[in-house]
Amino acid sequence: MTDHSDHNEPPTNGGRSSFSQDSPEVGQADTSLNHAHNVAAPRSPAVEALRRSPVTVTIAVVTVVVWLTQFVPTWHVQEKLAFVPLWALDEPWRFASTMLVHSQPSPAHVLFNMMGLLLFGTFLERTLGSTFFAVTYVLSGVGGSVMVWLLALAGTAHPFALYVGASGAVFGLVGVLLVPSKRLDRNWGGVVGFVLLNTLMLFVEPNIAWEAHLGGLIVGFVLGALRLWTMKPKGARQ
């Protein structure tokens, strides 16, 4: 409950507060309130990273939303967007659309990929720019599909299987981070740990499309090398 003053008690000083505007107590309170109003609370590093990575966040949100639509039986989202090597040339959009769909019903696949996207994507977008990040992500995803298609032609990958997931695109970001360059102040432990974890998963989950991982990794490394090795040092003349 909120405390109220007694209405039967006569007001002091004709209904005005007993503190005048010149009172030091009022001046001190006003100063404290103004200072609290003007000084904004500092953002956490994670929130600041997301705020400065709009493309990364947008891709993550769209991917999760599309994954949720896969649970609508009559829409057949996965079948329409997944990459199938046998249909690749007749339906070329599948080279890229496969990045938006993931295995179901378990959320482990999409969540693992989105964790990698947010972890590496926010760093690369803030460091190398939104345009480079977006181009690298999309081309790496397409590169993963191309690798699956080529290996299917060679008889290594399954030509009729549905390949889904953004793993190729995420591994493209890892490929950029693996480029030897002092221009990226990266966390090598996180990068190497991600690669090792995915390598170990190949022995646990046989349905992982390592072909897409490899294709995305190669494309990301090449694009990263072109970008990092051609960047002019800070302070250099144009």
Rank of each mutant, 00 (worst) to 15 (best):
G172N: 03
Q70I: 02
S23G: 07
S130I: 01
L33K: 06
H35V: 09
G144M: 11
W229P: 02
N13E: 15
V57P: 00
L117A: 05
E79H: 12
V72F: 05
V192C: 05
V77S: 04
L68E: 03
P92S: 08
W229Q: 12
V176R: 02
H37D: 15
N38R: 06
H213M: 14
A49Q: 06
G220I: 00
H76Y: 09
N187D: 14
F120L: 12
H4A: 11
E125Y: 08
F95L: 08
A169V: 01
L33D: 15
P105W: 14
S103F: 11
S167K: 09
L226M: 14
G116W: 00
V65Y: 01
R186W: 01
V26S: 04
R227Q: 04
E48D: 13
S17V: 07
N187C: 06
V222M: 09
S130F: 03
V176D: 00
P92R: 07
G155C: 07
H76T: 09
A88H: 01
R126P: 01
T69L: 15
P10C: 07
V26A: 05
L223A: 12
L177P: 00
H4L: 13
A46C: 04
N13H: 08
A41M: 15
V138D: 00
G27M: 12
I218N: 09
V204F: 08
G141K: 07
P45N: 06
R186T: 00
Y137T: 11
R43Q: 06
Q28K: 09
I208W: 13
W210T: 05
T127M: 08
T122D: 02
F19D: 09
A82S: 15
A166D: 05
L119N: 03
L86W: 07
L68C: 15
A49H: 04
S17K: 02
P24K: 07
M115T: 14
V39N: 10
V195L: 14
V64N: 07
F95K: 03
L139E: 06
L153H: 09
I208F: 12
W188F: 11
G189Q: 09
M114P: 01
E211N: 05
V146P: 00
L217D: 11
L68M: 13
V77F: 04
T230K: 10
K80E: 05
K234R: 12
L178Q: 05
T31G: 11
A166Y: 02
G224R: 05
H102G: 05
L173G: 03
S140H: 04
R51D: 06
A236I: 04
M147E: 13
L214F: 13
L217M: 10
L81A: 02
